[in-house]
Amino acid sequence: MTRQNQDHLFERMTIRGAVDSASFVPWIRRHAAKLGLRQEIRHADAGRIEVEVAGPVELIDMLEMGCSLGPIDVWVETITRTPAAGGTGGQP
């Protein structure tokens, strides 16, 4: 069970699309930090970024909404969220 308490989640967010932009990973880190979420980038290539994120579900929802738009030079096709296994969810 990955739900740490009723409102806090630890999830893996998989972002697919034309995400081959050097600006996107730092953008995700900044956006997560603004929301006070703990995050760790687990994978990044031209078509897929995987980030583990921990925090209140409403704020993870907001990160997902923000990432679906992203910076102007990327195009996000889909975002899927799955429970992450173990860990503390990286750094805020």
Binding site: M62, M65, S68, L69, P71
Partner: peptide, 25 residues
């Protein structure tokens, strides 16, 4: 803004986000 760095959208802004994605595309 088409980059949501300044305005952080919430679930209530779903339509706005879809509109901005459509504009961007």
């Amino acid at each position: 803004p088409l980059d949501p760095g300044m305005e952080i959208p919430t679930r209530a802004d779903l339509t706005s986000v879809a509109y901005r994605r459509w504009l961007k595309r």
